[in-house]
């Protein structure tokens, strides 16, 4: 009897969680967490951001209406708090794509800002950006190039004046900062059963929903946001 009850409630909980995890706020939270924890830039969630903004605007209007109509201030402030949180999430999501703060130090690892040269020359990465982000990156690159050119490169001998290559005899860009993808991340499966092929083992790693593992980023790279979320 006790077992039955237990089973029943977990199934219900699962259903409830599945339902909850599909609300836009939860989706945005997940996208935000993924973006924060991934060592490289991820696909811009254009539709999600659009929906979130529409909803935020709706709540904003509602709050204003409430304030105007002399509604109970406590209720209004609860709405306001919810609104603030949603707004923080949205801002932080957009921000974290430009600039990532590493948890273990005061210094910032700038995402788009840091790897602008790398992202720009790689079509696959460039397409993960939103249009305004692309314009931003392009400007950043121009500004940085101009600054470096003025301060250093113009003072160097002819064959050594490229910002991307060490010298004229370099065959590829060998001065572009690249993100360190060969790194471990903590991840959690969002589906009931996920199997991950590991690099150094014959047996795949099997994860059930909510299992947390610590794996190499590149083995789960294409599963992020689909079967696996980063934590």
């Amino acid at each position: 009897m006790a077992e039955d009850l237990g089973d029943g409630s977990t199934a219900e909980m699962d259903e409830y969680e599945t339902l909850m995890s599909t609300t836009d706020v939860e989706l945005l939270k997940t996208a935000w967490r993924n973006e924060k924890a991934a060592p490289e830039i991820l696909q811009f969630q254009a539709l999600l951001v659009k929906r979130a903004r529409e909803q935020i605007q709706l709540v904003e209007e509602t709050v204003e209406e409430f304030e105007g109509s002399g509604m109970d201030p406590l209720t209004v402030s609860l709405y306001q708090m919810d609104l603030d949180r949603a707004q923080f999430l949205l801002r932080s999501y957009l921000r974290v794509r430009l600039q990532k703060v590493t948890a273990n130090s005061l210094s910032c690892v700038l995402q788009i800002e840091k790897y602008m040269f790398y992202i720009w020359k790689n079509d696959n990465l460039r397409n993960r950006l939103s249009e305004p982000e692309k314009i931003f990156v392009k400007r950043c690159i121009n500004d940085m190039e101009k600054h470096i050119e003025e301060t250093v490169l113009s003072k160097l001998p002819d064959n050594y004046q490229s910002a991307r290559r060490q010298s004229i005899i370099s065959e590829e860009d060998d001065m572009v900062p690249e993100p360190q993808l060969d790194t471990f991340v903590a991840c959690k499966s969002s589906k009931n059963f996920v199997s991950i092929r590991l690099v150094d083992s014959e047996r795949p790693l099997e994860m059930e929903r909510h299992d947390v593992s610590f794996v190499l980023y590149k083995v789960i790279e294409d599963k992020i946001g689909v079967e696996i979320d980063l934590v």
């Binding site: 903004r53 949205l90 801002r91 957009l94 921000r95 430009l98 305004p132 982000e133 314009i135 931003f136 400007r139 950043c140 500004d143 101009k146 600054h147």
Partner: peptide
Amino acid sequence: RHSAALESYMSKMDLDL
């Protein structure tokens, strides 16, 4: 220049970041 770039991004998104 960098702050101008950031500003124009923010005004395009219509959101202060």
